[in-house]
């Protein structure tokens, strides 16, 4: 965008570089008047020849009145180091625990003051991990100090308003789609006409994020095998022990509560609502109430 902006004339050329005190004053005044946020409006409102990102950063990192200035205290540095050990270079998380400090200040302090020290002095040495005066058995406790890799799984979000599409696998008697189908169809944004999820997976070997191998998706299947998605286990759930007294008879509910009307057959819906159960429970609980009062 910059080449274009510079072509159209000097008046549109945004100012860059250090902020002047006059600019700071304009930005302060603007935010006093309109509050924080809506950064796209700020340059115009404040009368600043700066981009919105520049305005936002100037405010968040320097002008905000809640920002704590000055040297980091001993306690702050201590906490910063502890948090850094836990969180790594996640500056905003660390700053969130240091009242008034910005992520930017924390990062700068770390990079200029702490990091150097750490490379020269082995940090804190290796102290005994567990004080454990209450423990008789210390061998277990000390074994915990071994280092391990911290993994960060990438969260994937499924699109909002997903309604469960009804795919049929011709080789089985499934009435409703298995979750891996749903998920994979959503994840790979697959064409809805493609009814075979096996094909879906095979067709997208080069998705940006590597698809988990077969193992990785098995759990969805495992999860669902138990309650008879194939329609074999209706009414066979164990532990109907208390059913007679408490109206839990309808455990067989195969496709269950609250099924999304748009997606799954609600044929058995009516059968699942137990008439007697409710009054029975209420009575008992009414009794409880009177007992208590």
């Amino acid at each position: 965008m910059h080449p274009k902006a510079s072509k159209t004339g000097n008046s549109l050329k945004l100012r860059r570089g250090a902020w002047g005190s006059d600019e700071d004053a304009l930005l302060r005044k603007c935010i006093e008047k309109y509050g924080e946020g809506k950064w796209h409006l700020v340059p115009h409102r404040a009368g600043l020849n700066r981009c919105r990102k520049s305005c936002r950063l100037r405010w968040l990192n320097y002008l905000r009145p809640t920002i704590k200035r000055g040297e980091f205290g001993e306690d702050e540095v201590d906490l910063m180091m502890r948090l850094h050990k836990l969180l790594g270079n996640r500056w905003s998380l660390i700053a969130g625990r240091l009242p008034g400090r910005t992520a930017n200040d924390v990062k700068n302090y770390w990079n200029t003051n702490v990091q150097k020290k750490l490379t020269t002095i082995s940090y804190h040495g290796q102290k005994e991990v567990v004080q454990g005066e209450e423990l008789n058995n210390r061998k277990q406790a000390s074994s915990c100090a071994t280092t391990h890799v911290v993994v960060k799984p990438l969260p994937r979000t499924l699109s909002k308003g997903t309604s469960v599409p009804c795919y049929f696998n011709p080789n089985s008697h499934m009435h409703s789609p298995s979750p891996q189908e749903i998920i994979y169809n959503k994840i790979v944004k697959n064409d809805n006409n493609n009814n075979s999820y096996n094909m879906t997976i095979n067709k997208t070997p080069s998705a940006a994020t590597p698809l988990p191998d077969q193992d990785g998706i098995d759990w969805w299947k495992n999860l669902f095998e138990e309650f008879g998605i194939h329609g074999q286990e209706e009414g066979s759930l164990e532990g109907v022990l208390t059913a007679s007294s408490s109206g839990l008879e309808n455990l067989g509910a195969q496709r269950g509560l609250m099924t999304d009307e748009s997606s799954a057959p609600a044929t058995e819906a009516a059968d699942l609502i137990e008439e007697g159960g409710q009054s029975c429970w209420s009575d008992i609980w009414d009794l409880l109430n009177s007992d208590y009062n």
Binding site: G161, S163, V164, P179, T242, L248, L251, A253, M258
Partner: peptide, 29 residues
């Protein structure tokens, strides 16, 4: 979990914050 992002139900009869929940051990409903 089959219809992610959309709750299938919201139970809203408490008159204050809910602090604890527990499923029945022997009933799925």
């Amino acid at each position: 979990i089959r219809s992610p992002t959309m709750p299938v139900a919201e139970l809203e009869r408490h008159r204050g914050s809910v602090n604890a929940i527990g499923w029945a051990p022997l009933s799925c409903r």
